[in-house]
Design a binder for these strands. Structure first.
Lengths: 225, 225
DNA sequence: TAAATTTGTAAAATAAATGTAAAAAAACCC
DNA sequence: GGGTTTTTTTACATTTATTTTACAAATTTA
């Protein structure tokens, strides 16, 4: 499941976007200002950012500059959504590092087309959405959707694959079960289930000798050692 | 120096673009129709394509589909420049595989901002076409539009042929149903159908013993083993 | 250390995706 | 227009994946 961060102070618009993104199979995260956006970025591995320019506090363009100067986040595509529709606004947004610019008002169809277009390209970019993730003896080739352990290909189910990809993308992070349910399952609630545990267990088993690179931190969650 | 291919039948516009691109440090190549565009692509390693939609002969959208289905050119970003400015035109252009859409008339500043934005995202790639694709026991002769399995010719329908060609051109890639619908059918939406499955099924059957070289990756798509 | 809680594990139950064949619709071709 | 082929849809069978359950093992807490 792809994560989309929406930074937009107008709650109605954000909700409308959220609703439509969910319908299209994305997981939406909403921040009402740029600072909250940065916090979410630290918590969720986002694939695209939708950025409103006129925000309370830290302005959209400032946020964009921060992102683009950040080692960690500079590869995340940003689509500006803004009521500023003058040509100069668009050009300056693009030149500051946005990947696209969507003038308000816009249709959901158009928004989805732009998000899809950008994510389609995303596969060939570097960085967070890297093609090949490697960690110890584990190799995950995202373009070809293949996983190797010590050079040997292994077969994973979709959920196992997404789990592993998330872990490999953030090798230093311990993910709470809630957060995993959020990022991968798209669940909102913190309903208690053993689903995550079951999937981690079968992922571990399939990773053979590398299985115990996935550690459980009691009362906290799972992550890579 | 970056190479930009302009496919545009209006010579005045093409010259204006060429002049401005040169001033900005690009090398511009101009084709007045899509067929000439393909020829230039074979000669020059292009980094971006500017594509007018209303062309004499082979239409812009057809050209775009060819590019996107081609092994050697499918990574080249395409910016559509067109007088068709309806929302539906833009959406369908993006969904067919364009990276951006610039309605005419546009300023040179805007064009340059869009080109720069797209090139910032990483390098394109060039290669050489193969007329005959081979994989395990399957041979596809594109020039003569014939397919052989273990030396024996088999008859495929058009859609089956296109599917097979796409798979053979990218033997390591798993294609999502969406992407196949996009590339081969030219469909816009992620509307749920079983069309792809049905065609893959009949393709498999016709490939006889080689049929199960086409694997399904659940929740992901189809590709070659 | 004992009780309570959390995690590991395997298997059963449920849900979802894919395979398949055939009917319906659309496109093609004299 | 009528017959043919191709494409799409449908319905159902089969396979595969996911979630839940139950209990064992480990860990934390008091």
């Amino acid at each position: 499941m792809r994560n989309v961060l929406i930074i937009e102070d107008d709650v109605d618009i954000a909700e409308l976007i959220t609703y439509n993104l969910q319908k299209a199979g994305y997981k939406a995260h909403h921040a009402e200002n740029a600072n909250d956006g940065l916090i979410i970025l630290g918590e969720v591995a986002c694939d695209v950012i939708l950025l409103d320019l006129m925000l309370p506090g830290l302005k959209g363009m400032e946020f964009l500059k921060i992102i683009r100067n950040s080692e960690e986040y500079n590869n995340i595509p940003v689509i500006i959504i803004s009521a500023k529709t003058h040509e100069q606004d668009i050009i300056s947004g693009l030149n500051t590092g946005a990947d696209d610019y969507l003038p308000k008002p816009f249709s959901m169809e158009m928004l989805l087309a732009k998000i899809n277009t950008i994510l389609r390209r995303g596969a060939s970019w570097t960085g967070r959405a890297a093609n090949v993730l490697e960690y110890q003896g584990i190799k995950l080739d995202d373009a070809n959707h293949k996983v190797y352990v010590q050079g040997q290909e292994i077969k994973l189910t979709h959920k196992e694959y997404e789990l592993l990809r998330l872990f490999l993308s953030n090798p230093d992070t311990i993910f709470s079960r809630d957060r995993l349910l959020n990022s991968i399952w798209g669940y909102d609630s913190q309903s208690y289930t053993r689903t995550v545990d079951a999937h981690v267990a079968s992922l571990r088993k399939k990773l053979l000798s590398c299985g115990d690179l996935i550690v459980s931190v009691p009362k906290t969650g799972y992550g890579l050692k």
